[in-house]
Design a protein around this nucleic acid. Structure first.
Length: 486
RNA sequence: CGGGGCGUAGCUCAGCUUGGUAGAGCGCUACGUUUGGGACGUAGAAGUCGCUGGUUCGAGUCCAGUCGCCCCGACCA
């Protein structure tokens, strides 16, 4: 592991602005979200990290259910012959598929792929389940792990094995499938912005960025502090491509046998990486309250011959717990200051300090993680009875303020380039989301990528009055956000 | 997979140039004093120097190979 410079504020992690990569890795490890494991490219998700994942699951799952989906589970292993059926799909994933070749000592007659994604196995099952238009739509999601043989890995952002959810739906018409694709894209946008407090752009991908086998790929894209974009979820309109390859057919109302239209959509634990990088500061993580496994941590201040604060914290915490707050009381035998720093590092949104003076006065000190040390609004004293009343608004305010800070950054770093030279410069310098009229030609995108490392992140309708592609000068067809990406 | 860097105590690292049998700070354990933004004292435990092989009387140090991690590129949630 690289050393990284020491820092007066937090000794465990380097300053965020100096080296985002070093900060990020240290933050994930020191906040005990993940540990590296003996398996190359695979991390252990520790309780603090799994708590984030559980909250993501809870929030997303509720949205899936609300839009009519059900959960199911499909096998990890995919027979090679099945995988080979969709040509583009196979080609796209071939380099990152891991194979099971032996069962015990015996070599298998057919290799089994460890799923890099589940279109194949799910499509195969849908083919069996669908006979009639009355069987449609099928709206299924699965929470699962997948494996992709990656060369360079980083916690959450890219690991060989990762957790995600993948929704797979089948519909009777192209329109309905497209509607579903966009609906789920909006669910992701809503989750990213309103739960993870990560502002994103949502839109369609260029041809070169399309999912292998999809007709159209949509995505949400966030902008990290170093100016690189991070694709945080995708939603694919698969048209009839997979239905043809896996023979998902149905008799329609008009008595014609037709291929179904399918979609797939996924968000992985990469979203957690986006959230961590977006909100963290030099003291460590800043977890948005809606995602925080612990919303409020109590730190009692104990003096020799006076440990009344412990009982006071426990009592207040019990009341809050009963009211539905996620709380913890830190009774470890450490200095209060040490605990403050540690809970700062772990990103708990609100800390409540209760010491002898508070016990006497019936008060508690509320400290919000989103504000800097020394900010007059970082701390406030309230009566213990008022906690339950004050906290919802405080947590909500922290949630909003984290989003607002990130939104301001995204807005400031979304920049229109007006000529070719400045466009290439901005791409190279990771200026942010570079917004330009674009010709939509793959050759043009390839050239930009070769010169600057940037690609289109999302496309949208051509801005009014725009005529020429900024990168190459050909007639413009759409507007595109260009950026380097993770 | 290319280019660069790094693997020595739980963590951060020194020691390697010039081979001679293992070090520091922090952390950890026990006891005591402390406790409102990373406390202090006393005593103690802790490393087959990533792994394998080679050179040598002798290897953390030299040589070869290998595994892993980090950074920068190329490829992808």
């Amino acid at each position: 592991m690289s050393a990284g410079p020491q820092n007066a504020v937090v000794k465990e992690i380097p300053p965020k602005a100096a080296d985002l990569s070093a900060w990020y890795t240290a933050a994930c490890l020191k906040a005990e979200l993940v540990s590296y494991s003996p398996v190359r490219g695979c991390v252990v998700l520790r309780p603090a990290g799994f708590g984030l994942w559980e909250n993501l699951q809870r929030e997303l799952d509720a949205r899936f259910k609300a839009t009519g989906h059900e959960n199911a589970y499909f096998p990890l292993l995919i027979p090679e012959s099945l995988l080979m059926k969709e040509a583009e799909h196979v080609e796209g994933f071939a380099p990152e598929v891991a194979w099971v070749t032996h069962g015990g000592q015996e070599e298998l007659t057919e290799r089994l792929a460890i799923r890099p994604t589940s279109e194949v196995i799910i499509g195969t099952m849908y083919a069996q389940w669908v006979q009639s238009y009355r069987d449609l739509p099928i709206l299924i999601n699965q929470w699962a792990n997948v494996l992709r043989w990656e060369k360079a890995t980083r916690p959450f952002l890219r690991t060989m094995e990762f957790l995600w959810q993948e929704g797979h739906t089948a519909h009777a018409s192209a329109e309905e499938a497209r509607e579903e694709t966009l609906r789920m894209l909006d669910v992701y946008r809503d989750f990213a912005e309103n739960v993870a407090a990560v502002p994103v752009y949502a839109g369609v991908k260029s041809a070169s960025e399309r999912f292998p086998g999809a007709v159209e790929t949509f995505a949400i894209e966030a902008l990290m502090p170093d100016g690189k974009a991070l694709q945080s979820a995708t939603s694919h309109d698969l048209g009839q491509n997979f239905a043809r390859a896996y023979d998902i057919t149905f008799a329609d109302v008009d008595q014609q046998i037709k291929h179904a239209y399918t979609t797939s959509w996924g968000m992985s634990w990469r979203m957690l990486g986006a959230m961590i990088m977006t909100h963290g500061d030099d003291r460590g993580l800043r977890i948005p309250p809606k995602m925080a496994p612990i919303e409020v941590v109590f730190v009692p201040i104990v003096r020799t011959n006076d440990d009344r604060a412990i009982a006071a914290c426990r009592e207040a915490a019990d009341t809050l717990k009963a009211a539905g707050f996620r709380v913890r009381v830190d009774v470890r035998d450490e200095q209060p200051g040490w605990k403050y720093s540690e809970w700062d590092l772990r990103g708990v949104p609100v800390r409540v300090e209760i010491g002898p003076r508070d016990v006497d006065a019936g008060t508690a000190v509320l400290v919000r993680r989103d504000r800097a040390k020394g900010d007059p609004q970082q701390k406030q004293s309230v009566s213990v009875e008022a906690l339950q009343r004050v906290l919802p608004a405080l947590l909500d305010d922290i949630q909003r303020s984290l989003y607002a800070q990130a939104k301001q950054f995204l807005d400031e770093r979304t920049i229109a380039a007006s000529d070719r030279v400045s466009f290439y410069e901005m791409c190279k310098n990771r200026a942010g989301m570079i917004d330009v009229p674009w010709c939509a030609r793959p050759e043009c995108e390839a050239h930009v990528k070769e010169e600057t490392g940037a690609t289109t992140r999302l496309l949208r309708d051509l801005a009014a009055g725009a005529t020429a592609c900024i990168p190459c000068g050909e007639p413009a067809k759409v507007n595109a956000y260009f950026a380097q990406s993770y």
